[in-house]
Design a binder for these strands. Structure first.
Lengths: 248, 248
DNA sequence: CTTCGATGCTGCACTATACGCAACAGTGTT
DNA sequence: AACACTGTTGCGTATAGTGCAGCATCGAAG
């Protein structure tokens, strides 16, 4: 549609990489440097960009101001809803969206399974951090100190025979979780239900929530469950991007 | 310069207030709604804005992404430097820029007084939170729990006869400080030096630093010192705005 | 010291571009 | 039913934004 606006936006995106000169921007956008000069001027008037001491341009304060406003308008649940439904449709299983609430997980949204055998849970319910996929997905990306205070003192409450109740085992599991990008709840919370979960990040790079696919073992065996991790992490990444997250 | 870019930017600013319809934006910018429609379309293509379920527009994820990048590029000291020099020139007194470093204040920058009688301090030096203007200006705008852990257990170290060493007195002083927007160090740190200080906020609304004007009592009496608070808070606000802060 | 190739910046002429208007369908209000 | 809104499309026009030529400046290479 609007040529110059599009170029201006591309300039902002380029500037996110770091301070840049007028000519360099002209080259990257494939426009005359005169053009990039004038675009930068208008952006500067509105304080979307500013000049550094050496004359290069960088993102300006208004960018930060508006983002703060943008973040307020983002509600994880609303933005995630579409992706949760998609995931539910493609997998046919139960999908959960959960976030940190105090030292527990709270379920923010749920898509019901297509199968007759359903798991019991409801929006608003609370669950322990250490024994759920969502909890572990979140814990794995939390700074160490925060993890300490949230977990409290071991042994952690046992939910099933598989629950990880000591700190060493949990830490090792969280390290693996962080590395591969998704968490596995291997019947650690409910006796016959296992699940995979993936973290959702916001613009500042912090974990904001996590999503999970759960199923009873008689419906989905371990192998079939793990086969869903691709779709799961893709959906988590999509939601993260809606929140302003970008890979770096 | 660039008409459409300027309009696009104004749209972004308007959208910071909250989700808005096309026609409403057209009215606010005083352009035909067709125009605002097309501007919004290009902004949407670049994910700077997004549509809500009810068709209104709001700021998009890219806004948040870029802001995160913008914040990285902001260094308080560099951005404050010009304002510190201005303040030094207009007041003729010693100006400090300080921030939190662990549980103390660290001086990030300094402008020397014009007077023969100068105070001793240097960039990089550390000072106690509870006994300095900068420290109190920062403390006054910190969440309660953070304040608790930073201050530790009373009684606080006494620097001069005026130092506030118990928690109740300090809390009362901090409440007054937060309310009026500036802190007074009434010979609480150094025997013959008093100062006024004002907090500097960033885009997220958190205190990031504070600036102060200090003077020996023989150079500036209480009344003259207080007369400088206007310029001081104005400078602090200017620096805050460079960091993306905006009053709300 | 000169030369060269950069850079940022201004003025100008041209053309493409983005503008407003008119007209459409859809929705909710009086 | 009439009305006043909304978002959306197509179109002609004039404005707004483009690229070019040319300026001064600067640092590196000769």
């Amino acid at each position: 549609m609007s040529n110059s606006v599009e170029r201006a936006m591309r300039i902002l995106v380029e500037l996110a990489e770091g301070p840049t000169t007028i000519s360099e921007l002209g080259r990257r956008l494939d426009v005359h440097r005169t053009t990039s000069l004038r675009l930068l001027r208008t952006l500067e008037e509105q304080r979307f960009v500013r000049r550094t001491d050496d004359g290069r341009y960088q993102l300006g304060p208004r960018m930060a101001t508006l983002a703060a406003a943008a973040l307020e308008g983002f509600d994880v649940r609303g933005l995630a809803a579409r992706h949760l439904r998609d995931l539910g449709a493609s997998s046919g299983q139960t999908i959960h969206l959960g976030a940190l609430e105090g030292d527990r997980v709270v379920y923010l949204d749920k898509v019901e399974s297509r199968h007759a055998v359903r798991m019991y849970s409801h929006i608003g319910a609370l669950a322990p951090l250490h024994a759920t996929g969502i909890g572990k997905a979140i814990l794995a990306h939390l700074p160490g100190r925060e993890r300490d205070t949230l977990l409290g003192d071991p042994p952690f409450a046992r939910c099933t025979p598989n629950t990880l109740t000591d700190r060493a085992a949990l830490d090792q599991e969280l390290a693996r979780t962080a590395e591969r990008g998704w968490a596995l709840d291997d019947f650690e919370h409910e006796e016959f239900i296992h699940c995979v979960a993936a973290p959702v990040f916001d613009a500042s790079g912090r974990v904001r929530a996590a999503i999970s696919i759960s199923a009873p073992s008689m419906v989905l065996d371990r192998q079939d469950l793990l086969a869903l991790t691709g779709d799961l992490t893709a959906a988590a990444r999509d939601i993260s991007e809606e929140l302003g997250w970008s890979q770096t």
